[in-house]
Computed example of a mutant assay.
Amino acid sequence: MSVILRRIYGEEHPLEGNRILIDRVWPRGISKEKAKLNEWMKEISPSPSLRKWFDHDPDKFEDFKKAYQEEIYGSKTAQTKLQELKKMATNERLVLLFGAKDMEHNHAVVLKEMIEG
């Protein structure tokens, strides 16, 4: 299983594999051609209220992680998307793209753990 996390900004050499944008909002200044996406899965991203509450505050990360997992497990659509990502990761490299600056405290980290777990 190969799951790679990549920030979509500043990606000079896009990694090959199944490239999935997992943000709810399209990243500013990035064209669809430059992104080279296979899919944009906004359904798997945190809700706007959870995202605004978290505000990328490392002190809130553990609570954010629990709340985000609950959102995914509480939504049939998000569960379906999670299963799709797990299947992709077993067959080829899965590149999860996101816009957050903090590489350790973001929803992509949580999602990667869920896919690999």
Rank of each mutant, 00 (worst) to 15 (best):
S2V: 10
V3W: 02
I4L: 15
I4M: 13
I4F: 10
L5G: 07
R6S: 14
R6K: 15
I8E: 11
Y9D: 08
E11P: 09
E12H: 02
E12F: 00
E12I: 02
P14K: 12
L15Q: 15
E16Y: 05
E16A: 15
G17W: 01
G17C: 02
G17D: 08
G17N: 07
N18I: 08
N18Q: 12
N18A: 11
N18V: 10
R19K: 14
I20R: 03
I20P: 08
L21A: 06
D23T: 14
W26Y: 08
W26M: 09
W26T: 09
W26P: 08
P27M: 14
R28V: 04
R28W: 07
I30P: 01
S31R: 02
K32R: 13
K32F: 08
K32A: 12
K32D: 14
K32H: 12
K32P: 12
K32S: 13
E33A: 15
E33G: 11
E33R: 15
K36C: 13
N38K: 09
E39W: 06
E39H: 07
W40Q: 03
M41T: 01
M41W: 00
K42R: 15
I44R: 02
S47K: 06
P48V: 08
S49P: 03
S49R: 12
S49C: 05
S49D: 15
L50K: 13
K52S: 15
K52N: 14
W53N: 12
W53P: 09
F54V: 00
F54R: 01
F54H: 01
F54N: 03
D55P: 03
H56R: 06
H56G: 02
P58F: 10
P58I: 12
D59C: 00
F61I: 04
F61A: 04
F61M: 03
D63G: 02
D63A: 14
D63T: 03
F64K: 04
K66S: 07
A67D: 03
Y68G: 03
Y68V: 00
E70C: 00
E70S: 11
I72W: 01
I72F: 00
Y73C: 05
Y73T: 07
Y73G: 02
Y73D: 06
G74F: 08
G74M: 09
K76V: 01
K76N: 09
K76T: 03
A78D: 03
Q79H: 00
K81Q: 04
Q83C: 01
Q83P: 00
Q83N: 11
M88S: 06
M88P: 00
A89Q: 07
N91R: 15
N91L: 14
N91C: 06
R93P: 05
R93F: 00
L94N: 10
L94M: 12
L94Y: 09
V95M: 04
V95A: 04
V95K: 06
L96S: 02
L97K: 11
G99T: 04
A100E: 05
A100R: 06
K101H: 12
D102R: 05
M103N: 13
H105V: 12
N106W: 13
H107E: 03
H107I: 07
H107T: 05
H107S: 06
A108I: 04
A108S: 12
V109T: 08
V110A: 07
V110L: 10
V110D: 06
L111K: 11
L111A: 12
M114I: 07
M114S: 04
E116T: 07
E116N: 04
G117W: 07
G117H: 09
